[in-house]
Design a protein around this nucleic acid. Structure first.
Lengths: 328, 328
DNA sequence: ATGAAAGCGCTAACAT
DNA sequence: ATGTTAGCGCTTTCAT
């Protein structure tokens, strides 16, 4: 591979001039530029990006941390981030952790090594604080609500959660179960808290088995149906934080011909095409926008601006799996 | 940030020794190693990965080219690749192209610049040949069948396609439509060819509108239903290359209460959880394995081994959307 | 407008 | 087993 020195020699200029041409600097006489361009052409020159990175000290590479890419929530988030990143000429690397703290540490090491200029955490098993210690190595952005000093984009999960519960109550339900992905582990607490409070107000005793965690996929949703069937104290409504799970659950009730009156209400979160097609009531959250805002926060941090929190709107969409009972 | 020289000075050794410790070379006296390690600890040293890359000439970064990550086919493929890659200590970057040849060229440039050591093409808008010209810059792996000199992993699309058509015919169908994603643009030809041949044998005239392209999402599938309804010459069966589309189509027929006898047969490709949950007949293809094999092919190419083609098995799974009519 | 030269931080051939 | 030193290829300051 030819290098900048060979180009310089061939064009009869200095390496500095070549570098200037390469970086679109002003103050290069047009004829020299042409000479350089010609030499590059002839030698099929391409800059060695590692040398650029070493000299500049950064790499235009963003790291995205998530448990798995094979899930609509995360691939949606990545799509949002990627759209903006690519528009800014940034590349991005994925770190799939499977919620393994060690894998998250590897991502943080990549930040310290400068393999990536910054990190967007779409999920985390490590504590927020433990992660933020690494901020001195580069910007770190969260995609969940947090009180720590850092940039974060999120929706008001607990508020959305409460509104969802209110809706289910308004539909005449008291025995309500909640189903959490491990998507936002750190936040489960606040949601469960919101749940307990609401149930307390209703004077409804909580069966601890109504708090269900670790459900992420369609299969999980199908399995949930069977768990529901064997529950001693059956909830009449489910609040589920992921569309895939809701869909699996619903499809399984349909397959088993559960009577309309007996089939549990479902209120989902996310609003993918799937929940729309199945007419599942859901709380829409703007996932791609979250990704875009996450990138924007990275970009701002990169430019030295102070950290910022952004809270995105959610919107309850009532479809067929929650029905208002006016006559109660 | 401290560098290797400072560590050397502090530990009272040469930079070479530090480098040796860093790279786990043998022939370093235990006491010196300890000294070096201690110095690193004290100065919170981390190597600058750009310098390593520049000196070594490679980056342990693999590039994955795909139209969008937000689709189960591609996120499945990436999952397969990533599992293997991470096990080999490799990182990976995604190039989302949206089938844009220019974006694909950018990925190829990244290969030439050495930003990535190799490239796995999960889809391509450019010609195979145009892409393979860049092989001198690093290994390039395809995820579709090809006759060119390169490594590729695939399933025998056209054979699977024919078998699928046979199945539909055995179920009593003659008026069969095919629905292609643009997933494997280059291969559409061979599939359409297989389709024409089969239909010819059946003496079934083909309505050109039965060859439908560009369907990738659940929405696309729902839309397909309406297209079907307005067709003058309605096919009685659909062969669809993506589960999402099949699901959307099926759900829409169900929503419109199409009678069992009148609802078209559906034979899908892929076998995601979704098609299983909806009991859609499908031709299973081992997507994650494809990803794993793709990485393996990269790994072999990287080690200087000759290119290799791998063809993975497929398997027809009959469920509820294709029914054998024995009485015909 | 152009060039010389000093980095950027690490690796590895060579010498001892 | 350890050290010296010459790269790796580009950027950027400073001088002219």
């Amino acid at each position: 591979m030819s290098n900048i020195r060979e180009i310089a020699k061939r064009a009869g200029v200095s390496v500095t001039t070549v570098s200037r041409v390469l970086n679109h600097h002003p103050y290069v006489k047009e004829e020299k530029r042409a000479l350089v361009l010609k030499a590059m052409e002839e030698l099929k020159y391409t800059r060695n990006i590692h040398a650029v990175h070493l000299a500049k000290g950064y790499s235009n590479m963003l790291g995205i941390v998530l448990p798995t890419i094979n899930h609509s929530y995360f691939s949606g988030l990545v799509t949002g981030i990627a759209d903006k990143a690519q528009a800014h000429g940034m590349h991005f690397a994925l770190f799939q952790t499977g919620y393994d703290p060690l894998k998250e540490k590897e991502a943080l090491m990549s930040l310290k090594e400068r393999r990536v200029d910054g990190l967007i955490f779409c999920s985390n098993a490590l504590n927020d604080q433990d992660i933020l210690k690494w901020q001195e190595s580069g910007p770190i952005i969260f995609c969940h609500p947090t009180d720590d000093i850092c940039s974060a984009v999120s929706i008001a999960h607990d508020q959305a959660f409460k509104e969802g519960l209110d809706h289910l109550v308004a539909c005449g339900h008291q025995k309500i179960a909640i189903v959490l992905a491990r998507t936002e582990g750190a936040n489960s607490e606040s949601r469960i808290q919101a749940y307990r409070e609401k149930m307390h107000v209703l004077n409804q005793e909580i069966d601890e088995r109504w708090i269900i965690e670790g459900k992420l996929t369609l299969f999980d949703g199908q399995q949930l149906f069977f768990e529901w069937q064997t529950m001693k104290s059956q909830p009449t409504a489910f609040m589920i934080t992921t569309d895939e799970v809701s869909a699996g659950f619903l499809l399984e009730t349909q397959r088993h011909n559960i009577q309309v009156g007996e089939s549990p209400a479902i209120l989902s979160f996310q609003n993918e095409q799937l929940s729309e097609a199945l007419e599942i009531s859901t709380i829409d959250i703007p996932i791609k926008q979250m990704g875009q805002e996450a990138f924007d926060l990275y970009d701002r941090a990169q430019k030295g601006k102070p950290p910022e929190k952004r809270v995105l709107p959610y919107r309850l969409i009532q479809r067929n799996t929650t029905v208002l009972k006016n006559n109660r």
